[in-house]
Nucleic acid binder design. Structure first.
Lengths: 212, 212
DNA sequence: GTCTATATTTAGATAGAC
DNA sequence: GTCTATCTAAATATAGAC
């Protein structure tokens, strides 16, 4: 809308000349975000193949050409949306991995369902799961999540044989539950109380990780 | 593995006039089967959305119009391919559910990996998993498999509270492992020895099902 | 920065010839 | 029973106007 005069700082007078930091993109930072959020939601609901750039654009209230203008190909839109989503809330807090080893099963299980029960953090995970079964980019992200969440951070502390395999089988229990509960929606699991599920899974995860 | 012998006499042989039973479809029974097998393989490798009817036709060595001629829409091709695939080898044998309860964890786990390690029986399962995350028909099949394999047949015998939930969490452990091993291919799980995995999972499955 | 217009490709589905 | 030809719809992606 209101155009910046191209080139130098605004000829505008008396006001403070605060032209530092990143050059303003008018209101496009907003638009960029709206597109990425719309993309994240579309990918999470439909998966990679079924999602169209046009659908993303529509959901964001812009034209599809603009989506391409910002991010390039559909694949790059996916990458951008996922990358942005995984910045903030998806790293397991240090408390999960740093506490006493014999409570790690419950802490990890609790953290896992905390993330999945929150619609905002569930969306990017759904996007990855729904896309990873047929899209290699998403599969790579999936692998990275499993590796960084389960392996580097926890398996490293286990002083047991097959530490990595153990961590992955624990992850498999959690991932499989998420799959059946949030994606396939198998009953009664899909409607079961979270605490009840955690109560059943925590000892199993613990067992995978520490049982000699 | 070994295909069921088709009901009627083979098309080519009979010189004698045995015109009874179903009217002959010349060699089309062959073609039908080739199409369904090709469909099963395409769906298993690419998932529902990414698979095209043209791709199926090409793999079967026929024209895409013929695929429609036999089966109708793409959705119906999927249904036919899955239905055929799940006739023979995918029911858990009675031994799995009928033996002593305290060995059911190992028997079920062994059966599960037996099916997944066999390329012929793995294909339709991959097709369902790859498709179920975005396709409701496939999701319904998935649900039915979990229900009939895990629930009706085993949970019914458990004299414990939350028998169904228990069975589904056991299924989640197995499904999650298949997901990470065969679909996402997370290492070292993807290359691990089957016996090693079974040794770790069987007691966990057992625990889900019978631990008081 | 944002949209209109369009080139290009690919897919699902059907009619009809042989 | 099988294929050729074709209609129709949708998608990715780009060029260029405003």
């Amino acid at each position: 809308m209101s155009d910046l005069p191209p080139g130098g700082p605004p000829a505008g007078t008396g006001t403070t000349a605060r032209r530092r930091g990143r050059p303003p993109r008018t209101e496009s930072a907003d638009t960029r975000d709206r597109i990425l959020t719309a993309a994240r939601d579309e990918f999470s609901e439909r998966g990679y193949e079924k999602t169209s750039v046009r659908g993303i654009a529509k959901a964001a209230g812009v034209d599809s050409a603009l989506v391409h203008h910002y991010f390039g190909t559909k694949e790059q839109v996916f990458e951008a949306a996922i990358t942005q989503s995984f910045g903030p809330a998806l790293q397991a807090p240090k408390a999960v991995e740093e506490g006493p080893l014999d409570g790690v099963g419950e802490r990890l299980t609790r953290f896992f369902f905390g993330v999945w029960e929150n619609p905002a953090t569930r969306a990017p995970l759904l996007a990855v799961v729904r896309s990873a079964v047929t899209n290699e980019t998403a599969a790579a992200v999936f692998r990275r999540i499993v590796a960084t969440q389960a392996l580097r951070r926890i398996a490293g502390r286990l002083d047991l044989p097959d530490a990595e395999l153990r961590a992955e089988l624990a992850a498999a229990q959690l991932v499989g539950t998420a799959m059946l509960r949030y994606v396939i929606k198998v009953e009664p699991l899909a409607s079961a109380d979270t605490e009840q599920i955690i109560a059943r899974l925590a000892p199993v995860v613990q067992r995978h990780l520490t049982e000699p």
